[in-house]
Amino acid sequence: MPHSASDPSSPTADASEPQRRSRRKNARPGELLAAALDLFVEKGYAATRVEEVASRAGVSKGTLFLYFASKEELFKAVVRENIAGRFAEWQLELDVFEGDSEALLRHCYAVWWERIGSTKAAGITKLMCSEARNFPALAHFYQREVMLPGNALVRRILERGIARGEIRPLDLDTGVYLVLAPMMFLMFWQNSMAWCVPTHADHAPGSGCAVMPFSPEAYLEAQVDNLVRGLALRA
């Protein structure tokens, strides 16, 4: 009698089972990183326990430690996966961009919002700002792998504009924060007050709740307009 594909004694089933286990094993690091990102952003670094991460990922704590030696190493991997690992591609995009400085700024803000700002990864920055003093080793790691490369990338954008005669000469060490400030604001907004936007019921007369309509995309457009005028060469 021929074996069916679902028959455990079937040679096909025997051959496919190791493949399924292999695929499941290969998927685990990504599942653990996704679960860790969720919990770190929801609860903060200190309050997140590795047992919770493992449970949310559907594995045991022992399995988690097969891939990440400690909670600190898990957090570093989350940062690299979601933010630090993107700088190489962003540098390449800057290398080949052909538009003027205004177009480049609009492109950079749009790409940042799509890939970081509107995602859970934006919560990592808020987490670091709130817990850096309690975890200086993590703060130094974040500064080295996120802040310094980020500043360097923005500096390249400004240097490019100055070289092309589209941006006035300015102190680049502080100028980079003119570009970064709107991003910082949105990351804090997305992970704080954006969760408290009033509901329709809150708008009832006498509720005392202010209506705060807010479009991150419109805000970034306004910031680009402001930057272009402020950084432009002056007659």
Rank of each mutant, 00 (worst) to 15 (best):
V53N: 02
R28T: 11
I83A: 09
L39K: 06
I116Y: 08
G123C: 13
G62A: 13
Y67R: 07
A121G: 10
A122N: 01
L104I: 02
E42Y: 05
R56T: 04
P29M: 11
F97W: 06
L66H: 15
M147D: 05
E52M: 03
I124M: 02
K61S: 13
R28C: 01
G99D: 12
V53F: 10
M128S: 02
V50E: 07
F97V: 06
T63V: 11
F65G: 05
T125D: 02
F97C: 05
L138C: 09
A103D: 11
V96L: 13
F141N: 11
A47F: 07
V59K: 02
Y109I: 04
R86G: 09
E102M: 03
S60A: 12
E51C: 00
W90G: 10
K126M: 12
L66E: 07
A34G: 04
L138I: 11
F97E: 11
P149Q: 09
T48N: 08
A122H: 08
G99W: 11
G117Q: 04
I83F: 11
F135I: 03
L33P: 00
V111G: 03
G150I: 01
S60K: 09
E102D: 15
F75N: 04
S101P: 01
N134Q: 13
G99N: 03
R49H: 15
V53I: 15
P149C: 06
A36M: 02
E93F: 12
F65Y: 15
L74F: 14
S70K: 10
Y67P: 08
Y109H: 13
A69L: 04
A121E: 01
F68V: 06
R106N: 06
L39Q: 11
